[in-house]
Design a protein around this nucleic acid. Sequence first.
DNA 1: AAAAATTTTAGGTGTTCCCTAACTTTCTTC
DNA 2: GAAGAAAGTTAGGGAACACCTAAAATTTTT
Lengths: 150, 150
Amino acid sequence: MGTKSKLTASEAGYLKLIYRVQEEESGKVGTTAAARAFGVRPATVAEVLRNLARKNLVRRRPYRGVELTPQGVAEARKLLRKHRILEVLFVGLLGLSPESACEEASKLDYYVSEELINAICRSSNHPKTCPCEKVIFEDPACCGAGGKKK
Amino acid sequence: MGTKSKLTASEAGYLKLIYRVQEEESGKVGTTAAARAFGVRPATVAEVLRNLARKNLVRRRPYRGVELTPQGVAEARKLLRKHRILEVLFVGLLGLSPESACEEASKLDYYVSEELINAICRSSNHPKTCPCEKVIFEDPACCGAGGKKK
DNA sequence: AAAAATTTTAGGTGTTCCCTAACTTTCTTC
DNA sequence: GAAGAAAGTTAGGGAACACCTAAAATTTTT
């Protein structure tokens, strides 16, 4: 029990945000800030957070904030891997600007299968970073690990 | 009034199916057959069809079947354009088999923006058909029309 | 310590998507 | 052409999602 239920689309959004701000920038995401970022009310954010906690992806200390559990970190990395590999494709092959690439990737990352992402990863030569230099996490199923491509 | 409300994901699925079978193959999609194709009950199909009719995308003659309205045709073509351009990308650039390309495209076509599709279209040199030879409809916003690329 | 800002709960709404049960219409087949 | 089988339809529900407002609790600021 615990890791069974799948993420919903909006939960995925919060997970990505929390990971980016808290794990990558050592910042802190407040409920209100997150609400503004997603264009919803704080109460809505609180609710999603509660659901993420029920799924064991974040730990919540009421009024103090949330932090990702190890499973939450793993899940966020899967999503950000997808997001960033899509960005590589959109900028590198399709010639989008990094900004539109990010926007488009945000709309899709949640829906894209790992198989497709790995196909893109392979055909892009297993990039280590996205167009804005953020790290692309490795997927053992892809090959990345042990690879030498720079 | 009529063309305002957006399609839902499942409505998009039926629209694609109806177009493919009825407009491209001159066949007929029965409620039960559609239900089997989507893994749901016939009653569910009937309901979606009713909603498509409310949105003026199909015309329904109870117990006789549905046919697409001009708006329904336009909408289906937009979706199938996306679907098939994604297939081109997946097969041509990523090396997927036509079958997996189709599967992956089905999961994504509804969510992909027209801008992104047109970027892919451009970078693929405005293909006229998908990997399985089905026509890719043109989008005036892309360039296709009047273009000479074969 | 009061005022301001933030966060959380409680309780609701609308949409989507799916279901079962019961009924109607159409198609078969004798 | 009537009876039974098959296909399609409505009516009525239910669960999950993604929102919201209003009110209460808890920081934080001044």
